[in-house]
Simulated assay, not measured.
Amino acid sequence: MSCGRGTGEDPLEGTDCSEVLFRVFEYLDGEMTADDTAKIKAHLQECGPCLHEYDLDQALKALVKRSCAGETAPVALRTQIMARITTIRYEISE
């Protein structure tokens, strides 16, 4: 999928829309650099199909948050997940 505008005004011009959509959860979670955030925001303002997908992802994230707000993971599960994350981080840093 691509916007196909070719105007030179899009900061992500030449970037396939699939890359923007691949990173949309990083954008939603505030896990991007300020520069990348600005690029994604500008792209979403100009690209209707990407904005529609973003809106769906945003709604899904809000629904999951509402549905799971009163739930807490058992301590054993949280410990296991944190141990796995630590292991993966260690493997990546090697």
Results as ranks from 00 to 15, higher is better:
Asp57Ile: 02
Phe25Glu: 12
Asp35Ser: 04
Leu28Arg: 05
Ala59Tyr: 01
Phe22Tyr: 07
Ala83Ile: 00
Ala42Val: 11
Ile88Val: 13
Arg23Met: 09
Ile92Glu: 09
Glu19Cys: 01
Asp16Thr: 08
Leu60Ala: 07
Asp36Ile: 00
Asp57Cys: 15
Glu13Ile: 05
Leu77Ser: 03
Thr7Tyr: 14
Ile81Asp: 05
Leu77Phe: 06
Met32Ala: 03
Ala76Met: 03
Gly30Trp: 01
Ser67Gly: 13
Pro11Leu: 11
Arg89Ala: 02
Tyr27Gly: 04
Ala59Met: 07
Thr7Glu: 15
Val75Phe: 13
Asp57Gln: 15
Cys3Asn: 12
Pro11Ser: 12
Leu12Thr: 12
Ile88Glu: 02
Thr33Trp: 02
Cys50Gln: 14
Cys17Leu: 11
Met82Gly: 00
Arg66Asn: 02
Arg89Asp: 04
His43Leu: 06
Arg78Asn: 07
Ala59Trp: 03
Ala42Tyr: 11
Leu44Gln: 13
Leu28His: 05
Gly8Asn: 12
Cys50Met: 13
Asp16Lys: 10
Ala76Gln: 12
Asp29Ser: 09
Thr72Arg: 12
Glu31Ile: 02
Ala34His: 05
Ile40Ala: 04
Leu51Met: 14
Asp10Val: 10
Arg23His: 08
Lys61Val: 05
Cys50Lys: 10
Thr72Asp: 07
Ala34Phe: 06
Ile81Met: 14
Pro74Glu: 02
Thr79Lys: 08
Lys65Asp: 04
Glu13Asp: 12
Ala34Asp: 09
Met82Pro: 00
Met32Tyr: 01
Pro11Cys: 09
Ser67Tyr: 02
Pro49His: 04
Lys61Arg: 15
Leu21Ala: 06
Leu56His: 12
Gly4Ala: 00
Ser2Gln: 13
Ser67Glu: 09
Leu21Asp: 07
Arg84Val: 02
Gly6Ala: 08
Ala38His: 07
Cys3His: 14
Leu21Met: 15
Phe25Leu: 05
Glu91Thr: 07
Thr33Phe: 02
Ala38Asp: 13
Cys17Ser: 14
Lys39Val: 05
Lys61Leu: 13
Ser67Asp: 05
Gly70Gln: 00
Phe25Tyr: 12
Ala76Ile: 05
Pro11Gln: 10
Ser18Val: 14
Glu13Phe: 01
Glu31His: 06
Gly48Leu: 15
Gly4Phe: 03
Thr7Val: 13
Arg23Val: 06
Glu13Pro: 01
Arg89Gln: 10
Cys3Met: 13
Cys47Trp: 03
Asp57Asn: 15
Ala59Glu: 12
Lys61Ser: 13
Phe25Gly: 02
Arg23Ile: 07
Phe22Ser: 08
Val75Asn: 09
Leu60Asn: 06
Ala34Thr: 09
Ala42Gln: 14
Ile88Lys: 03
Leu28Val: 03
Lys41His: 14
Ile92Arg: 14
Glu94Pro: 01
Pro49Met: 03
Ile40Cys: 01
Cys17Thr: 10
Asp55Phe: 11
Ser2His: 13
Phe25Trp: 05
Lys39Arg: 14
Asp29Glu: 14
Leu12Pro: 03
Arg78Val: 08
Val64Asp: 00
Ile92Asn: 06
Glu26Trp: 07
Gln58Trp: 05
Glu71Asp: 08
Arg5Tyr: 12
Lys39Glu: 13
Pro49Asp: 04
Thr87Ile: 04
Glu91Lys: 14
Thr79Asn: 03
Gly14Gln: 04
Gln45Ile: 08
